[in-house]
């Protein structure tokens, strides 16, 4: 697996392209996934994701995939699981402090990022891993995130109307509603 991982980092640019497509597909699938229920698809999707990503990246299913920001080198393979590496212990030749036979995950990450279109993302400071998300699907998280973003934009619009017509809302709440609307009640939403 280690060799496939190195291959993926060497071809970080191609994998970046594939990942972008996958992300778009996951976002497009949000309405469908929402209908089936994210809860119901969580396990099967996580299973498929685990199989694919374990082969390609030695994925550890942290649930918070940041491959696009780390040169397609999975940071969970770093024995210190750094999210902003490399540490100060890298050995001569770029080998790991803790596992001397392994190339430093983060030296590879910076190398991989230098070949990617969006490689500059590696300069962003990443937060610590939320351990309670371990084992869950990152792919589904991406589509949910996008959906949440859309919902937020919709909310903002509704709030703006309600704020602009406060008196109308006081007399007739349904003139500028703020409560959550069920999908069936709104035309055009699936």
């Amino acid at each position: 697996m280690y060799r496939i991982r190195l291959f993926a980092i060497r071809h970080s640019r191609s994998f970046e392209w594939i990942y972008k497509r996958l992300e778009r597909a996951m976002i497009a699938l949000d309405p469908l996934l929402g209908k089936i229920g994210y809860d119901r698809v969580e396990r099967p999707v996580a299973f498929v994701e685990k199989c694919v990503k374990t082969v390609l990246f030695d994925c550890k299913m942290c649930g918070q995939c940041v491959l696009s920001s780390t040169g397609m080198s999975c940071p969970m393979n770093c024995p210190k699981q750094l999210r902003n590496g490399p540490c100060g212990g890298v050995r001569p030749g770029g080998f790991c402090e803790v596992k001397p036979d392994m190339k430093c995950v983060w030296a590879l990450a910076w190398d991989g990022a230098s070949r990617m279109k969006g490689g500059a993302q590696i300069h962003t400071v990443l937060p610590p891993v939320e351990r309670n998300l371990e084992g869950s699907s990152s792919w589904l998280r991406v589509s949910r995130e996008k959906a949440a973003h859309l919902r937020k934009a919709r909310e903002k619009r509704r709030t703006a109307i309600a704020d602009a017509f406060p008196d109308a809302r006081k007399n007739e709440p349904s003139a500028a509603p703020l409560a959550e609307e069920p999908a069936q009640a709104v035309k055009g939403s699936k």
Binding site: R83, N84, G85, C87, P127, P128
Partner: peptide
């Protein structure tokens, strides 16, 4: 442990 890294 390594819950944080130096940057986070």
């Amino acid at each position: 442990v390594f819950d944080f890294d130096s940057l986070s």
